[in-house]
Structure formats: C-alpha cells, structure tokens
C-alpha cells in the first residue's frame, strides 16, 4: 500500500533516523471493543476476510462458538469464546474479538531484524511490510499476544493491519463497519478512552459489574485496540488475554544490553589484536642452523 498518506514513526531493523518522523500532526487512532455488548455474530470476522481478500481458512468445531483455535496468517480477526462459570453457580459467555493490539511499544518491531519489514505509523498502526520481511519469525517471539502468523508458502508473516489502507483514506476498519451491536468503535485514542470509561462506569453503577474496567495495558505503552471488560481483574478469562503484557524480558535483554555488550566485545577484539600486532608483531621462525633452539 502507499505509505504517502501514513507517516512512519518507527521502522524495524533500521539504522539511522526515520524519514518523515514528526513531520505531520496525526492523532492516535484506536479501536474500542466492548466485550459486554458483543453477541459473537462474527460479522467482523467475515468483514475482515472480505476486505483483506484473504483466502478462507479451515474452520474447526470444538463444541464452542469459536471459529478456530487461534488467529492464522489468513485469519486476522477471531472471536474468542469462553463459557465462564460465575460465583453464583451460573455462567456467562465471554466473547472477545482477538486481533493485533497495535501496541505503542511493539515487541514484534523490536525483535524484527529486517529493515522496514515492520513499521509503526504516527497514528499508531503497526503494519507488516511483507516485501521487506525475511521470514525469520522473530516478531512471533517478540509479541506478547500470539498475533503474528507465518505462512509457510510465502515464508512471510501476516497479521491485522488495522485496515491501514482504509484508515489512510479516512474510513473506519472493515470490522467496525460490520458490527451490528455497536460493540466496536473507532476514533481517536482519547475519544475511545473516554467512551470506554463512560461505559465501564455504566457497567459498575447500573449493571452490577463492580470490576468492570478498560484494558489498555501500560506494559506495552498502551494499545491501539482497547477493551471494555466486565471484570478487568481477570482478563485471562477472555480467551487468554494476558493480565500484564510486556515485551518478553529476553527480547529486551537480547536487543539492547546484549547487543551493546556484544558490539563492544567484537570491536574490542579487533582493536586488541591490532594493538598486539603493533606492539609485539609476528612470531617468525628463524630458519637458521640453530633451528628453533633458544635464541641468543
């Protein structure tokens, strides 16, 4: 897609400055998913497949309302279903629209070694550029949400683009457009946070969900997809939403301190052997008749 209408603010595997960074005022965009009004109709799943023109993925039936176990390279938007037992002996159905969270601090981008294979636009969308992807799968290692998926045929990794090609034209993402209950909203991050807070207050005050809250995890700098949950204290109940996601510490260690230390060590080694040669020079065997005996 054209990058002209979306300014880039972060580039994976990139040396030097980011062209165009800070050249445009652009609002952070955000998708709000209100799990309390989702009915699991999966219109968003279909709209995603349609708009992105993805070949249909094999569905599987596991006695629940879930289309397949997890998202796939050709299935970026999945309603995660959980039959959740309540304390009073009843149960409730939890439906959560699972997709890329568009983290402010994306672990995929941090882990990616290929220049320009993952970019973050100044509106917050994290987008994979498959023509620069080398298929190493490090983004899968960096993601705390199990989102990037590898296609063995193309050897590239795919995920939700937040419909960057629609958003750049002033349209809302396809999933938002298809939602019949109004559980999906799209707008600026500030507006969506505001709307989410109002909704949780409503849930707490009028519907008896005392633990209702907004999921916008600070461990990844906040996300471009936020959830309203009935119970913010147990996000895992919503199809394995991590309670406190962050970039894996191993990835942080590998990409910053280890890299600095390793580069210094390599440089130190090269400088060290050069200095040794300048100071002590080579070991030359004197091919004389004393023939390796102790030198005079």
């Amino acid at each position: 897609m054209s990058q002209a209408t979306l300014r880039i603010q972060k580039i994976s595997g990139h040396a030097g400055p980011v062209p165009g960074q800070g050249m445009q005022r652009e609002e952070q965009v955000c998708k709000l998913v209100d799990t309390t009004t989702c009915i699991g109709c999966k219109a968003c799943e279909v709209a995603c497949q349609e708009w992105n023109d993805l070949p249909f993925a094999q569905t599987s039936f596991d006695n629940t309302y879930q289309t397949m176990p997890s998202t796939a390279w050709n299935f970026w938007n999945l309603i995660k279903f959980n039959e959740h037992p309540k304390e009073d002996g009843g149960f409730m159905w939890l439906m959560r629209k699972d997709q890329c969270m568009h983290c402010a601090e994306p672990g995929c981008l941090k882990a990616c070694p290929a220049d320009g294979a993952i970019v973050q636009y100044s509106n917050g969308i994290v987008d994979f550029q498959q023509d620069h992807c080398i298929g190493c799968g490090y983004c899968i290692t960096g993601c705390p949400f199990d989102i990037p998926k590898f296609n063995p045929a193309t050897k590239k990794v795919y995920k939700c683009t937040l419909c960057s090609n629609r958003v750049s034209q002033g349209l809302e993402p396809a999933c938002i457009k298809a939602c019949p209950t109004g559980c999906l909203h799209f707008g600026s991050k500030d507006d969506m946070k505001d709307l989410a807070e109002k909704r949780t207050m409503q849930l707490r005050q009028h519907y008896g969900f005392e633990n209702a809250g907004v999921y916008d995890p600070p461990g990844v700098g906040g996300t471009g997809v936020i959830y309203v949950l009935h119970d913010i204290t147990h996000p895992e109940a919503y199809g394995g939403l991590p309670a406190n996601p962050s970039i894996p510490w191993v990835v942080k260690l590998w990409k910053t301190p280890l890299k600095i230390l390793g580069n210094l060590a390599m440089l130190g080694g090269l400088i060290g052997v050069t200095l040794h040669y300048l100071r002590f020079g080579p070991k030359v065997v004197e091919e004389t008749k004393n023939n390796g005996e102790k030198r005079p």
Binding site: L258, M266, H276
Partner: peptide, 26 residues
C-alpha cells in the same frame, strides 16, 4: 534467541583471535 546470540558472540571472539594468530601473528 538468547542462546544463539551468546554462543555466536563466543565464537566470534574466538574466531577473531584464531584468524589473527593463524595469519598475522604465527
């Protein structure tokens, strides 16, 4: 990822010395 990077760095250190000693020094 961690083991691969650390082990590779060890070999690089050894490799620098090996090439230096095998060509220039000895």
């Amino acid at each position: 990822v961690l083991v691969h990077a650390v082990a590779a760095l060890l070999t690089i250190g050894a490799f620098i010395l090996h090439v230096y000693m095998g060509t220039a020094m000895v």
